[in-house]
Amino acid sequence: MTQTNTIRVLVAKPGLDGHDRGAKVIARALRDAGMEVIYTGLRQTPEQIVEAAIQEDVDAIGLSILSGAHNFLFPKVVELLKKEGADDILVIGGGVIPDEDIPGLKEAGIAEIFTPGTPTSRIVEFIKENVKH
């Protein structure tokens, strides 16, 4: 049988922020790039995100926050993934995120942070190059 390697990505909005234009545009762009995208909607707790990521066995998680709660919520997701032994999942983040916060987030295990103005094609490429199959 021919093996297929469809990349699966969970796109999630942690926290209470309702601005989902970016998350939805990216979800569509990833789909159009041939990926399976699981979108979980607004107001997700880190626990819900990690549980969904494990059950869906995704290759990557894309988190989007515009409310400024990223320093708390992004690392929390990575921490829970580690606890569940699922830290092989690539975690990327986007939103209104000041440059000075980025090193700290990367140190916490976020693979890359995409700020406003990033073309979706760059995110697609990044995922394709960095997921572990």
Binding site: G15, D17, S67, A69
Partner: peptide
Amino acid sequence: QIGYDSDQPLSQGEVGKV
């Protein structure tokens, strides 16, 4: 805006942000 007090678990990380 969503009717939670600052001490509710869902408020974590969001208090005073936007």
